[in-house]
Simulated assay, not measured.
Amino acid sequence: MASSKLDSPSTATNVPPLDVSHFHHTPSYCEENVYLLCKKLCTSGLADADGSDLYVVFISNEKKQVPLWHQKASHRADGVILWDYHVICVQRKKESGSSPLVWDLDSSLPFPSSLASYVSTTIQPSFQLFADFQRFFRVVHAPIFLRSFASDRRHMKDSLGKWIAKPPAYGPIVAEDGAVHNLNEYNEIIAADVSTVGTDSLNAVCWQKLGIVVNETQLEEFFSMDAS
């Protein structure tokens, strides 16, 4: 992901705030950071072993300019930054009464934060934005993402083949089916793709490779639905 400039809340969660430095983070490679985050949450016991309570959420729009607040890469006091796209993990525990959690490695908010707190402070839906800055969210079930996602990092090279941002030290991520790059399938998000939130969408996200797309007024609704 890339950013450009645009001219402390804390809410109790079901998981105590963790030290974000214990998780792998390469600046500008949020999709890979979240891929590794999901794996670590599964192996550490912080999530279901198969990742069934985790969702990878891509945030973008047709113009590739989405403002988010409380981002550590920002140079402003309010932490606002304009990403071309951003990727976070949302955890939806099966236990009754559990609040959905957001794991955002680039956020200055508590790690993790409740979804309600993250929406109100990072997405700020009450803030009036021009149409070009509206945020859309591709929600992908983590077990599917971990099998299907691939990136050879071609999007981080300029026309001369030079790196725009230093790549991670580990090798590129290859999908189980052998695909070497499909990031564009995930971060290409348009308003026409927005789904109606309901039982069908809850089921669809559990079997569709690219999940479903919701708008910013539907995000909390989707994660508050009864899975039963």
Score class of each variant (00 low, 15 high):
V56Y: 03
S60V: 12
P27W: 03
C30S: 12
L37D: 05
P16S: 15
H24R: 06
S10G: 04
S3W: 11
G51M: 01
E32G: 01
T43N: 08
D7L: 11
C30H: 01
L54Q: 02
Y29C: 07
G51S: 09
S60Y: 04
P17R: 04
I59E: 05
D7S: 11
N33I: 02
H24M: 06
K39F: 00
V34D: 09
H22T: 10
V57C: 08
V20H: 04
S52I: 03
D7N: 07
G45R: 06
A47F: 00
C42P: 02
S4P: 02
Y29T: 13
L41R: 02
F58K: 00
N14A: 10
S44A: 09
Y55P: 11
D7R: 12
H22I: 09
L54C: 03
L36Y: 12
L6T: 14
Y35L: 05
V15Y: 04
V56N: 02
S10L: 12
S44K: 01
S3L: 03
A49D: 14
D53F: 00
V57E: 12
K39N: 11
A47P: 04
S4Q: 14
S60W: 10
D53E: 12
S3N: 15
K40D: 11
S3G: 05
P27R: 04
P27S: 10
S10I: 12
S10M: 13
F58D: 08
I59S: 03
N33Q: 07
V34Q: 08
V56T: 13
V56S: 10
Y35G: 01
N14R: 07
N33W: 06
N33H: 10
K39A: 06
G45D: 08
I59A: 03
T11S: 11
A47E: 00
S21W: 03
S44G: 06
P9Q: 12
E31L: 06
T26L: 09
L41Y: 02
S21V: 09
N33F: 10
K5M: 01
P16F: 05
P9E: 14
D50P: 07
P27C: 15
V20T: 12
Y29L: 04
P17D: 11
K39L: 05
Y55E: 06
N33A: 08
D53C: 08
E32C: 07
